[in-house]
Simulated scan of single mutants.
Amino acid sequence: MPVKTDYQKIPLVFNVYKPVGPSSFSIVHHFKKNLGYDFGKIGHFGTLDPFAEGVLLIGVQGAQRLNDYIHELLPKTYRAVGIFGGKTDTGDLTALVNVEKHIAVEFQKMAKEELEEKLAKHFLGEYWQAPHSVSATKFEGKRLYEHALAGRLIQKEKVKREILDFKIARYEYPEMEFEITVSSGTYVRSFFEEVAELLGGYGALQILERTAIGENTSANGIRQKDWPIKGEMFDLEKWGRPLDQVLRLNKVRLTSEQTSKYLQGQRLKLDLIELVYDSQQELISSQNILWVYNQDSHLLGLARPLNEELAAIFNLQLAISLFL
């Protein structure tokens, strides 16, 4: 008879649907105060500005330590509505329009399909972008929006990002509703400002929803009515997702002796290790990083093939305490 998983003892990720208004930090704080059991540290995998809504992933029991890997390996998809004709300090319409300039008339009248083709041709693929001056990117230990609130607008250097997919869902000038899938760190507000500039004018976002981080979609997000309440039972099995379901990778399964060596940071010979391929290969986030399990299928961490050996790159503290 299989042993029932104790969800209070494994790293979990909650796919929370953040509404418009509260900060990402306040939602993490709510979960921290109301989950009602000893879950260790807590953290999120990519902030959303207060004006934005959608997928906010929150990790507990060691899951939050995977932050860098989630950012690196899982693309993010957004639905946005932008309004052409005006520029704001924030790149969205929570601030007043301070400069007006409509895009060229030819683009105002252009058919949705034609405009989509033009923008996709220009933006798809490698994309260099500077973080918006009121974004959550840090500079000298503070968020850029914190500098902006203090009257100091910071212009950071452009960094390489990637636009993976772009579709215009609706175009009725001056409104453009679009869906975009991007590499981590891409700012959709800045993207829409660049779209408007390419078309000869200004623009700002009216709506921004993060609809997916990898396979974690807004449709499956935990709505506010289902968030934990102190003193009431919160169904971890229903709402919590194990790490290997959030980040889909191929797997290796280790013997007892190999497990001990892995947790001590020793390299293992690849030809002596059992490799388990995921059944949904098209969803694999990386072929160069592997989930590592012991012979009882307990998740131990991550490893990378390196010169015919398996090198540990991430050990879950929970795994070390339970199985070393």
Rank of each mutant, 00 (worst) to 15 (best):
M1E: 12
D6S: 06
D6H: 06
V13Y: 03
K18L: 00
P22G: 09
S24Y: 03
F25H: 15
H30A: 10
K32N: 08
N34F: 07
L35V: 11
D38H: 14
G43H: 02
G43R: 01
T47G: 04
L48A: 00
G54K: 08
G54P: 06
V55C: 07
L57D: 07
L57F: 01
G62W: 04
R65F: 11
L66P: 08
H71D: 12
P75Y: 08
T77S: 15
T77M: 07
Y78Q: 03
G86Y: 01
D89I: 05
V99E: 15
A104M: 03
A111L: 12
K112A: 11
K112S: 11
E116A: 15
E117S: 14
H122S: 00
G125D: 05
G125Y: 02
E126Y: 07
Q129A: 07
Q129R: 08
A130L: 05
P131I: 06
S133T: 14
S135P: 05
E140L: 15
A150R: 07
I154L: 09
K158M: 13
K160V: 12
R161L: 13
R170N: 13
R170F: 09
E172Q: 12
M176F: 00
E177G: 00
Y187Q: 00
V188L: 01
F192M: 01
E193R: 14
V195K: 10
V195R: 06
E197A: 14
Y202E: 13
L205K: 03
I207L: 12
E215Y: 06
N216Y: 00
D226C: 01
D226Q: 08
E232N: 05
D235P: 13
D235F: 09
W239P: 07
R241D: 06
L243V: 15
V252R: 00
L254S: 11
T255Y: 07
K261C: 05
D271C: 06
D271N: 15
E274V: 10
Y277I: 08
Y277M: 04
I284D: 03
N294D: 15
R304P: 09
P305N: 12
L306R: 13
N307Y: 09
E309I: 01
L310K: 08
F314I: 10
I320D: 04
